[in-house]
């Protein structure tokens, strides 16, 4: 139990720092990779929703402090965390074996995990870019940003997922 908590703490800090760096990098002036939400996606399925929401809020707020965007990432990650449970139930069959409660390509299979990951990433990107674009009023550019960032984020998070999972297997 304590080991899992510590692992999540390390994962959260590392991904937050990576996100702080990535937030300054904008590919082709449209795509901003978002990776820190991987922590929220990876939280155990049986964890109470209140905890998921709290963790999401704190993570989002920490990123906001770094980026000087008060409340923006916090709002997006809380809303995304609220969707997490229903999205998970929609894609994972009820009789599925959940002996490993951590969602990953290993425990869910690549297809199901990809659906789960992409849906929530698109939700997050939609929220963040439309909140950000309140003042810009340029819908096509915003949609382009959402699409490009989602694709990039999904690819990066799949990479992170394979890194995190293989490391665990080696340790066992």
């Amino acid at each position: 139990m304590i080991r899992t908590v510590l692992q999540f703490l390390v994962l959260a800090v590392v991904l937050l720092l990576v996100q702080v760096v990535l937030s300054k990098v904008i590919f082709f002036n449209v795509a901003v990779p978002i990776v820190f939400i991987y922590v929220i996606l990876r939280l155990p399925v049986n964890l109470h929703v209140n905890w998921v929401l709290t963790i999401a809020f704190l993570l989002g707020l920490s990123l906001d402090v770094f980026n000087n965007t008060p409340g923006m990432h916090a709002l997006a990650s809380v809303v995304m965390a609220a969707f997490r449970h229903s999205v998970f139930n929609a894609f994972v069959p009820r009789e599925a074996d959940m002996s490993n409660p951590l969602p990953s390509t290993d425990s869910l299979g690549v297809g199901v995990y990809l659906k789960y990951l992409s849906t929530l990433t698109v939700v997050y990107c939609l929220l963040i870019f439309f909140v950000q674009a309140f003042t810009l009023r340029d819908v096509t550019l915003t949609l382009l940003r959402v699409a490009a960032s989602s694709v990039l984020s999904i690819a990066m998070m799949l990479g992170i997922d394979s890194l995190v999972t293989t490391r665990r297997e080696k340790r066992l």
Binding site: T54, F57, D64, G71, L75
Partner: peptide, 11 residues
């Protein structure tokens, strides 16, 4: 949490 975020966001 949503209200707190919005307060921060729209202040």
């Amino acid at each position: 949490y949503v209200v707190m975020s919005c307060v921060l966001l729209f202040r």
